[in-house]
């Protein structure tokens, strides 16, 4: 299965809301395989969303198990079709970057713990609770399905900690 080139902003596909996936046919399975292959090929990548390979459909893959930040708390490889966050709690700020927006990073605050429902590659409905880096990665990838980039969520400039007093 092919490793796909990562689509870079300003390609409009990255700012579009994606189409929900209906039947899990061979086309959807091939899409999932492309996402997995592309993620692992990138080496350091822990997640890829379908729009990042130019497909405007609701599918993401996430695997933080090989990363320093996620290796102790993860569900391994997650293939998520029509994923939806149904509960959020806590908050966690991380410095994020994105393969589709090279050379820029920013502090983003997201939920620390999420409950997410999705259909997996085998067609099973699943509901799982994730926390920490895995939760951040899933929220970042699901944002791609709604045409959101981390740039839309940057929570502070690096110097912001000095400004809170009067805000």
């Amino acid at each position: 299965m092919p490793v796909c080139p990562i689509i870079l902003y300003p390609d409009p596909v990255l700012k579009q809301a994606t189409e929900p996936i209906g039947a899990l046919d061979s086309e959807v399975d091939a899409l999932i395989q492309d996402l997995v292959d592309t993620m692992y090929d990138a080496g350091h990548s822990v997640g890829v969303a379908a729009p990042q390979i130019g497909v405007s459909r609701r599918a993401v893959v996430v695997d933080v198990s090989h990363s320093k930040l996620g290796k102790d708390n993860n569900h391994g490889l997650l293939t998520m079709i029509n994923p939806r966050v149904i509960e959020k709690s806590g908050s966690k700020t991380m410095r994020e970057g994105c393969m589709s927006v090279p050379d820029y990073t920013g502090n983003v605050t997201r939920a620390e713990t999420i409950v997410v429902e999705f259909t997996d590659r085998a067609g099973r409905s699943r509901v799982i609770e994730c926390s920490g880096f895995e939760a951040v990665a899933i929220q970042h990838e699901i944002d791609h399905l709604d045409g959101m980039l981390f740039l839309d969520r940057v929570s502070s400039l690096k110097t912001d900690l000095f400004r809170r007093k009067n805000s």
Binding site: H44, R95, M99, T105, A137, H140, F150
Partner: peptide
């Protein structure tokens, strides 16, 4: 200097 100093690594996650 009689100051508090903390040092920590910032992990940037490219997602």
């Amino acid at each position: 200097l009689q100051v508090d100093i903390t040092v920590r690594t910032i992990h940037t996650a490219e997602l």
